[in-house]
């Protein structure tokens, strides 16, 4: 029973981290058609900023903790917007181009290299700010339930924003049809950059709250974006509700496989899951098939 509780809480927490990355991928994808492969390194960037900027001994009761959170969100969002601009400009010249594949992968590599230059090649560690959840035999670091809460807050926040605010509605319009939105007077580039910035801020929140549960080093971003992408595909690309449900399920499955069959099978399981989903439901479990113009 104790083992099941640990697997459920930790698995849901790790899966929520992937769900947050998936939601940030969705946000930028819906507004621009771009899957930002640098999102994993933006997560690590937020972890690095947390490691460097958080004063020693500051906890959730300290105002400095919240100030650092704001600083990390803003800094990462700015990096995300710059990276978005670099990605979007070549696409404006040739709307049908797939230049974004190269520019987002390049962005990921550049960010990784900058992180290595910034903190050195080693892994850096951030303390767990959220205490522990006691269990009958053992405990779970509080960061894992916090990640679940964060995923729920971000999902609900995005729904509210995209249905209640003019800029949110404009992002929705872009996701429906970019050309039509442009024709209706929506400044597409401005809102697409906003989408990149918001996506980076979501990832930054995950990197800040989950900083004690992620590996902070220049070489790790790619792994996070791969798992985030898997969750986005399982949930249905562009579908945040799908990501919110698929992430924790995926995390729990990974932990359970590791517990029952050994850690060596975790990655194999991840790949098997994505292949199975693509075979059975190419649009993802919660995605809708695209209408095709004839």
């Amino acid at each position: 029973m104790n083992e099941i509780l640990v697997i459920l809480i930790r698995g849901a927490g790790v899966g929520s981290l992937y769900a947050l990355i998936a939601m940030s991928l969705n946000l930028a994808y819906n507004a621009t058609g771009v899957l930002n492969f640098a999102q994993g390194h933006l997560l690590v960037t937020a972890g690095v900023c947390t490691y460097l900027w958080m004063p020693d001994g500051a906890g959730t009761a300290s105002p400095m903790w919240y100030l650092t959170l704001v600083a990390v969100l803003v800094a990462t969002a700015v990096v995300g917007m710059i990276q978005g601009l670099i990605t979007l400009i070549p696409m404006r010249r040739d709307g049908g181009s797939h230049s974004w594949v190269a520019t987002t992968i390049a962005g990921s590599i550049v960010l990784g290299a900058l992180i290595t230059l910034w903190i050195g090649p080693q892994v850096v560690n951030v303390p767990n700010y959220f205490g522990f959840v006691p269990l009958p035999d053992g405990r779970v670091p509080g960061v894992y339930p916090m990640l679940v809460v964060l995923a729920l807050v971000v999902w609900a926040g995005l729904r509210w924003y995209q249905s209640s605010f003019l800029s949110g509605l404009a992002l929705n319009a872009l996701s429906q049809d970019v050309d039509a939105a442009r024709a209706a007077g929506v400044p597409a580039l401005k809102f697409q950059m906003l989408a990149f910035g918001l996506a980076a801020a979501i990832t930054a929140g995950a990197g800040f709250i989950g900083s004690s549960a992620i590996e902070i080093s220049g070489s790790r971003g790619t792994n996070y974006v791969i798992f985030g992408f898997i969750v986005a595909v399982i949930g249905g690309i562009g579908n945040n509700k799908g990501a919110l449900i698929a992430g924790p399920l995926f995390g729990v499955l990974m932990m359970y496989v590791s517990f029952e069959l050994g850690g060596g099978l975790q990655v194999v399981t991840a790949l098997a899951v994505i292949v199975a989903v693509l075979l059975l439901r190419p649009q993802g479990i919660f995605g809708r098939p695209h209408a095709r113009r004839v």
């Binding site: 640990v6 697997i7 930790r10 790790v14 590996e215 050994g262 850690g263």
Partner: peptide
């Protein structure tokens, strides 16, 4: 990044 499931086993 996490060895908890292995340790539980």
């Amino acid at each position: 990044t996490d060895l908890s499931s292995q340790v539980l086993a």
